[in-house]
């Protein structure tokens, strides 16, 4: 390539394309796609509930809402905690970030624990008609996302102890906290669909 006519190279301006730094774009596209799977489950749930002749299985009165409400409050507030953790990171206050990040993780873990307690006390199972199936499918699939979120957060926490890891930016933290907000919003919709909208005609 050195043999190229020098006259042609004289005024040549080579162009550049960034190789990396596209992760956040990719992650946002992925989240949009992931939200469709929940949309599919939600619309399936609504359709089955509206059209089912017998919604509740025999011996089931409805769902207890007090414990799930506490769970909801914890999960929704953890989103705000995550937001402030991110602010600390922007201000380069690493310990502040770690403390609040750990608190977010703890709140997420409490949520999973609460789900476990609720599941273990329920009088119906996965195979109790469409009601049981949709209930466990929706809450279980959401729970998997919460657990994934906690695992991702612990990875970010670990990375904050690597020297100079966040000196060049904190894409991973931004992405994980975005994921956490996503999981939160999904839960709010899920709570309204499953726990608030209980009455059947």
């Amino acid at each position: 390539m050195t043999t190229t006519n020098p006259d042609l190279q004289l005024n040549h301006r080579p162009g550049h394309i960034k190789h990396d730094g596209h992760n956040l774009t990719g992650f946002i596209i992925f989240l949009c796609s992931e939200s469709i799977i929940f949309l599919a489950f939600f619309s399936g749930f609504a359709l089955l509930k509206i059209t089912a002749p017998e919604w509740l299985p025999e011996g089931v009165e409805g769902l207890e809402t007090r414990l799930p409400l506490i769970n909801t409050v914890v999960l929704v507030s953890s989103s705000f905690v995550a937001y402030f953790a991110e602010r600390y990171l922007h201000k380069e206050n690493l310990w502040g970030f770690r403390a609040l990040w750990l608190l977010t993780m703890a709140m997420g873990t409490y949520f999973v624990y609460g789900q476990y307690v609720e599941w273990s006390e329920l009088p119906f199972s996965l195979s109790s008609g469409v009601f049981g199936g949709t209930f466990y499918l929706l809450t279980g699939f959401h729970g998997l996302h919460v657990i994934t979120g906690i695992l991702l957060m612990s990875l970010m926490l670990y990375r904050s102890f690597l020297p100079n890891n966040y000196a060049k930016g904190e894409m991973g933290v931004t992405a994980v906290s975005l994921f956490w907000h996503f999981v939160d919003v999904i839960w709010i919709i899920l709570y309204i669909l499953i726990y608030v909208w209980q009455r059947t005609t």
Partner: peptide, 17 residues
Amino acid sequence: FDLSFGTSFFRPEGGGD
């Protein structure tokens, strides 16, 4: 789930569609 774990999302006899 319907095939392997006994749910009835799409099974008419279990209320599914």
